[in-house]
Design a protein around this nucleic acid. Structure first.
Lengths: 345, 345
DNA sequence: GACTGGCACTCGAAACTCGGGAGTGCCAGC
DNA sequence: GCTGGCACTCCCGAGTTTCGAGTGCCAGTC
């Protein structure tokens, strides 16, 4: 067990880096000879073999079977991401493509849709974008519309441009005058409030109404409260599932669980994790993921929103053998551009 | 060529039906012996072989290779769907499951989301649901909200409960009083109007404003017009992509084009086709589809909405060798329940 | 001590062979 | 018109062989 604490020297790290890069490019186990041929390591295959034996001992690479080349382990990728690579910055052309893709969005939905598409396209992975969190935004406007005499539609517009709707069924026909009254009182009480604080303000609104009207008002208030909290957090957009075809074979084991996970937005939220600011990239590799179906999968995510606090998270899901430097660069760049668009000019 | 017009007798049709049912169940070419064993056709394998030869001559079945069993062609499925099968009605338990799945939806988005999920679950195929078409609905309410001094949010609420949003950027700071004025005039002019007719009403609204304000009003009107038309039609929800794993192998050829098509909502809209009333089921089999990537795929779709006119279309996409009677039954049933939910009780 | 060339060994992938069996078409007979 | 019989076809899977990339180890060199 002495070997475990041994410090890996510079060249061994070079070898690991070469292995990761090669494997990512070819998706085939890489042997000592090929490695020396393709990267100019300045040493002989035999030497590389020794280094590889050491790296395997440390758990950074592994052999699919005896007498095959090596492939990186999760730990190998982790070391690569943390120490051996630098996030690639995009070319000016790519940057331009991003911004031209995002301008012209007509509303928040459109921004999110375009972002998903863009992210999927440039990373060639599955893209996931969370809608701006409600809890950090404030009330811009509340609208109450009568659909039928016994059916109301509540519309909540937040400072982030997100629009939430709720249908409320009532037992008795509602009075238009009362609705108008309610609408104005709600807006007076709520406009500008943070959603998290709005709950208390809502209660006091109820009390300003005459007792006979209380049940109706209470129903509406309850519905609004719902809109303020749980449900809203969960909205997510997914795109680029067709990129899963590039996973290679072993469809059943690799692709199926991913497709299943993509249907479960709760799982996706866990995958994306806590929102961070756009400077910080979260990378989860293989088994580090909180969902076992994605053991052959990595997630690259980051927050977006204003500089001071992140509104929500976006990222991609792809095979562990992805091109981390490029992918991370793309995710970060997209997050920054979206933040800009949302902050407006 | 005489054979082409020959009328297939009763037993040959029985044989075709048996072949389709067997192939759908096993996904393996079916031979004369197996067929006689499994279905009690009352004749010998040799006789069935003669019938099969005739059916192949007519183009309803084919052999993957010499000395293998037969599989149905697109034409075979077509005949099966048109003449040889009856749409399966759901069991009471299933019906109950459907309605309990759909009640409790909080808004239109929620209805659509739940419908997609439900449809995918009971058909075990990929489900597609189009949002209620805007053109057939009318304006319930228009809201204009100031986000920042130079940024307005338009919210359009339709009679079908659909909520459209549009962001409008202005060159100058806008006057709150003007906005309030605009809001009320817009609502007076538009509320109750069909979206298709709203365009003309909008123009007249512009003219009621003083010339200095016209540019701003025009910008808003333009944006509203957009919301009334194109973009809105295209909304679609997709779910159940994980069911694609059951397509069997030949992933590259079968699954990839489907995944790609699912990303292209324009293609999906074409696939779903014209909205019909919930009584009429549209089935497109294999090459009948307007998209060549889906040559091994069938689409079962129908309209939903009120009895008199369909609001939009929903349906499923699956391999041509699907269980048509059950699938068609499920699609029809879901469409009816959704129609009910939307029409309300 | 670190690196290298050489060498025997391992073992999966691909090519090949081959028999079994499901399925067919045809034909003569009932 | 249906049936049993029969010769024929040809895919599939199991078993076998070959091939070669890759390895670990060792003795030799700088």
């Amino acid at each position: 067990m002495r070997g475990v604490v041994r410090v890996l020297d510079e060249r061994k790290l070079d070898v690991l880096r070469a292995i990761v890069e090669d494997y990512v490019a070819t998706h085939e186990p890489v042997g000592s000879k090929t490695l020396v041929d393709r990267h100019n390591l300045g040493v002989s295959p035999a030497t590389v073999r020794n280094d590889m034996a050491a790296l395997e001992e440390e758990g950074y690479i592994t052999q699919p079977h005896t007498s095959a080349g090596r492939i990186p382990t999760d730990a190998g990728y982790r070391l690569f991401v943390d120490k051996l690579s630098t996030v690639k910055t995009l070319s000016p052309a790519e940057k331009k493509a991003i911004s031209s893709f995002l301008v012209g969005a007509v509303d928040l939905d459109d921004v999110v849709r375009r972002t998903v598409r863009l992210l999927a396209q440039i990373t060639r992975q599955v893209a996931i974008v969370q809608y701006p969190t409600l809890s950090r935004s404030s009330v811009r406007h509340v609208e109450v519309v009568t659909m039928t005499p016994r059916r109301l539609l509540l519309v909540l517009i937040t400072s982030t441009g997100r629009v939430e709707q709720r249908i409320v069924e009532t037992h008795d026909d509602v009075d238009e005058q009362l609705i108008a009254d309610l609408r104005s009182r709600l807006n007076t009480a709520l406009t500008g409030q943070r959603l998290t604080d709005a709950a208390t303000s809502l209660e006091s609104v109820t009390e300003t109404f005459a007792p006979p009207n209380r049940p109706l008002v209470a129903a509406i208030v309850t519905s609004l409260l719902e809109a303020f909290t749980v449900e809203g957090e969960q909205r997510i957009a997914v795109g680029g599932a067709a990129n899963l075809t590039r996973y290679g074979d072993d469809f059943e084991r690799n692709v199926k669980p991913v497709l299943e996970a993509l249907e479960e937005h709760v799982i996706l939220l866990k995958l994306l994790g806590e929102a961070t600011n756009p400077q910080t990239l979260t990378v989860r590799i293989g088994h580090e993921n909180p969902y076992e179906g994605l053991a052959t999968t990595s997630v690259v995510a980051t927050g977006y929103g204003s500089k001071s606090e992140a509104l929500a998270t976006l990222g991609i899901v792809g095979p562990t053998h992805m091109d981390y430097p490029s992918t991370m660069g793309a995710v970060r760049a997209v997050a920054r551009y979206v933040s800009q668009i949302l902050a407006d000019s």
